[in-house]
């Protein structure tokens, strides 16, 4: 950009990709979202993989709402991962451990992780957005590209499933 006569500080900024500022602002919440869905061990890989693919798109500048888009790709990426792992985990738990989650302490990380495993990835994402980010149903629907009815239904299911263990 130096050829345009812009100040040196602007030149320094152009060394960075245009998405960097938005990503920096969004990355903490993206990591929390990813952690809520897939757990802390896989959260970094999930965000790196999904966001990494988005930011290399040549038409990135055409995305109107990049924060919302990044939320969606992280949730979709998490869904793929969880789906492929879930049944194996389910089987292993059934056949090997037969663990019973009779009561969950909401301040105990292990308890919480096991309880969240009872939810679908979408339900986890919705629960996170509603109960951590305090988003409204319409906002969640927009973020996840689903209908408001889906959000309400899945949130109700998630609460039903967690109500029993959160006694």
């Amino acid at each position: 950009m130096s050829s345009t006569g812009e100040p040196a500080t602007e030149v320094r900024h152009t060394d960075e990709p245009p998405w960097a500022q938005v990503y920096r602002a969004e990355s903490p919440r993206l990591m929390r979202l990813a952690t809520a869905i897939v757990g802390p061990a896989d959260a970094y890989d999930l965000v790196a993989d999904t966001v990494g693919r988005v930011v290399r798109r040549a038409d990135l500048h055409t995305i109107d709402d990049l924060p919302a888009y990044l939320t969606l790709v992280v949730v979709n990426g998490a869904t793929d991962r969880v789906r492929s792992d879930r049944r194996r985990t389910d089987r292993e738990e059934r056949a090997g451990r037969l663990m019973v989650t009779s009561s969950v302490d909401p301040t105990n990380a292990l308890d919480v992780r096991r309880a969240l495993d009872r939810l679908s990835p979408q339900q986890r994402a919705i629960a996170y957005l509603v109960y951590w980010e305090d988003m409204t149903i319409p906002d969640v629907a927009h973020r996840l590209d689903v209908s408001e009815g889906t959000v309400r239904r899945q949130l109700a299911r998630a609460k039903d499933r967690l109500r029993e263990v959160l006694k």
Binding site: E16, P17, A20, Y23, R24, S27, P28, L30, M31, R32, L33, A34, T35, A36, P40, A43, Y44, V47, A48, D49, V51, G52, V55, V104, P106, T107, N108, A109, V112, R113, A115, L116, A127, Y128, Y131, W132, K159, L162, R163, L166
Partner: peptide, 28 residues
């Protein structure tokens, strides 16, 4: 229940790791 779910989400996200840096993403 809502209060407990908020607590639960706080617990679930408390150990969120550091995000990939911009440089990380570019390398990736």
């Amino acid at each position: 229940l809502d209060d407990r779910l908020r607590t639960m989400m706080r617990t679930a996200t408390a150990d969120a790791p550091e995000a990939p840096t911009v440089d990380d993403l570019q390398v990736i």
